[in-house]
């Protein structure tokens, strides 16, 4: 039972991270019907940007995080303008192949720049409250909440979960309450009509890419805090997050959040059963959802989504 709670908490934290990545996939898909394969790579770049800012430039973590978000937003918009915008009216598969190409380029660029080896934020660069430990002599718990069974829940994980929830609520409010959110929904509904109503669709798409990429960058930094930073992280985590987006109903932001949590928990408990198949659970969920209910848990049921 104790183990169950620990794993549940781990799954929730991982799920929060997946949800942050998944909204990037789902927002872009909702608006231009493109599976942005490069989104996982943007997430990976987010982690590396923050890493470089704190190690090479010596910036404090709390400045590096928003800076990395801004850089990633810029990267996302740039990718859209350079690669995807010229293909707006091309066959959908051309855009998908382009996205795969961009993903290849970014992943190997990262490998060239930062090498394939794993890196992590040095302890002195992390804010103090993120360094959790159990004092060996006194048994005092530092910067963590005790869980039953002697395990601890670091403040870092609490922060990640809270941040994910806050950002998700913020995004939800942005989409449903602001003018740009309304424009986004209009574009997702019918781009031509939105254009005719005087909405600058290209600008709206750019904003979508920027928001999705910035949230991806947050997820990247959080993964950097919890695990390691490596060029392939975007691929593995990106696929799991994409599975989350599909599970929630691709194009649906609320769905992406719920899907992220479900995939995160499934992966954590799945790893308990057989650690070698850790990643396989996300793939299996993804395939089953597409085959059985292509619109996902929250998606509108349409007869054909091509």
């Amino acid at each position: 039972m104790d183990q169950f709670i620990v794993q549940l908490v781990n799954g929730l934290v991982l799920g929060g991270i997946y949800a942050l990545i998944a909204v990037g996939y789902t927002m872009v898909y909702g608006i231009i019907q493109l599976i942005n394969f490069a989104h996982g790579e943007i997430f990976m770049f987010g982690a590396y940007f923050a890493f470089v800012l704190v190690t090479a430039f010596g910036l404090p973590f709390w400045i590096a995080l928003p800076a990395s978000m801004a850089l990633c937003a810029l990267l996302g918009v740039l990718i859209d303008i350079v690669a995807y915008r010229p293909l707006r009216n091309a066959p959908r598969l051309s855009a998908l192949i382009t996205a795969i190409g961009i993903s290849l380029v970014l992943q190997n660029l990262a490998r060239l720049i930062w090498s394939a080896s794993q890196q992590s934020f040095p302890d002195e660069s992390k804010p103090n409250i993120f360094i959790s430990d159990i004092d060996a002599q006194t048994g005092a718990i530092i910067n963590a909440i005790p869980l039953p069974g002697g395990a601890i829940l670091p403040y870092r994980d609490v922060f990640i979960l809270l941040l994910a929830v806050v950002l998700m609520i913020g995004l939800n409010r942005l989409i449903y309450l602001t003018k740009i959110g309304k424009a986004m929904r209009a574009c997702a509904e019918n781009q031509t009509a939105a254009n005719l109503m005087g909405i600058n669709t290209n600008m709206v798409i750019s904003v979508t890419f920027a928001i999705g990429s910035a949230l991806g960058a947050v997820a990247g930094v959080m993964v950097g805090l919890r695990e390691v930073i490596e060029p392939t992280m975007g691929y593995y985590k990106g696929v799991a997050a994409f599975a989350a987006a599909v599970l929630g109903g691709i194009g649906n932001v609320t769905g992406a959040m719920v899907g992220g949590i479900v995939i995160g928990i499934a992966e954590t408990f799945g790893a308990d059963i057989h650690s070698g198949y850790r990643l396989a659970f996300a793939y299996i969920i993804m395939i089953l959802v597409i085959l059985i209910r292509p619109s996902g848990l929250f998606g509108k049921s349409t007869s054909k989504r091509a």
């Binding site: 382009t98 190409g101 290849l104 970014l106 394939a116």
Partner: peptide, 19 residues
């Protein structure tokens, strides 16, 4: 690893200019 970078560029360029 740079060869994969080049393959990526090939995919993007072909799709853009000569689908």
């Amino acid at each position: 690893g740079a060869r994969y970078l080049i393959f990526g560029i090939i995919l993007v360029v072909i799709m853009r200019f000569r689908p």
